[in-house]
Computed example of a mutant assay.
Amino acid sequence: MNNKLPTLEFLRRQLDGTLPAGAITEMQYPTAISKTLGFRITEIDVGYAKVQMDANVEMHGNQQGTVHGGMLCELADATIGTAHSTAILEGETFTSIDLKISFFRPVWKSVLTATAKQIQHGKTITHYQCEIFREDGKAIALAMSTVMTLRGNSAHGR
């Protein structure tokens, strides 16, 4: 019996509670960093992902007493990676080329919601936008990223 599912189907079934025991996909879900940081995928579609986390300064704080900007970068990067993993074919993988983030306001303690979507999807290069909001609905950051899809020998072992 083959328990391997395409990534999008795997994540959809994980979300709706119908993922069969022993099911796998080419990507590693949940990722180790997502488990460590408590990221939760809450919506998924082709080239789209919504991820939440419970942020607080006791765990994610910087020297100014707010949630560290690097934490927001990781949330954006993980959300973009999740979105892109649904938009590639079996045997393909990907790597980030860049990530630019703009910070708008601080966070002390909040459920954060990051939403990543494709802005432009090419054969090899795809551009993403990721917005991060506090639970009060206020935007706290906007990230833009370029992702390269890897195929063939470039994808092997990644």
Rank of each mutant, 00 (worst) to 15 (best):
P106S: 13
K123Q: 14
S102G: 14
D98H: 04
Q118D: 08
H127F: 08
L99C: 01
Q120F: 02
C130L: 12
I132D: 02
R134Q: 11
I132Q: 04
I101P: 00
L99N: 02
K100M: 07
Q118V: 15
F104V: 08
T113H: 04
I125F: 07
T113K: 02
C130G: 05
Q129E: 13
P106I: 03
E131H: 12
I132K: 05
I132W: 10
I101M: 06
R105C: 09
T113G: 02
K109T: 11
K109D: 11
H121C: 10
L112P: 00
Y128A: 09
H127C: 05
S102W: 12
V111Q: 12
H127E: 13
G122M: 07
R134A: 11
I119Q: 15
T126C: 09
I101V: 10
T115Y: 05
Y128M: 10
W108Y: 14
A116P: 01
F103H: 11
I132F: 09
P106T: 09
T113R: 08
K100P: 00
I119F: 06
K109I: 07
D98M: 07
L99Q: 03
F103Q: 04
T115K: 12
T124K: 08
T113Q: 05
W108T: 14
P106E: 04
D98S: 10
K109E: 15
E131T: 15
L112G: 00
P106K: 08
V107G: 00
T124F: 00
Q118E: 14
E131M: 14
Q118T: 15
I132C: 08
H127K: 14
I119L: 13
C130A: 12
Q129P: 01
Q120D: 14
A116Q: 03
R105K: 15
P106M: 06
I101D: 01
F133C: 03
F133G: 00
F133M: 10
I125W: 02
E131D: 15
T115P: 00
R105M: 14
C130K: 03
H121L: 12
R105D: 11
H121W: 05
K123S: 15
Q120M: 05
F104E: 07
T126R: 01
K117L: 09
A114V: 08
F103G: 07
R134T: 06
S110K: 06
E131V: 12
D98L: 06
A114F: 04
K117Y: 01
I119D: 15
H121N: 13
L112N: 01
Q120H: 14
P106R: 09
K117G: 12
I101Y: 06
C130T: 06
T126I: 01
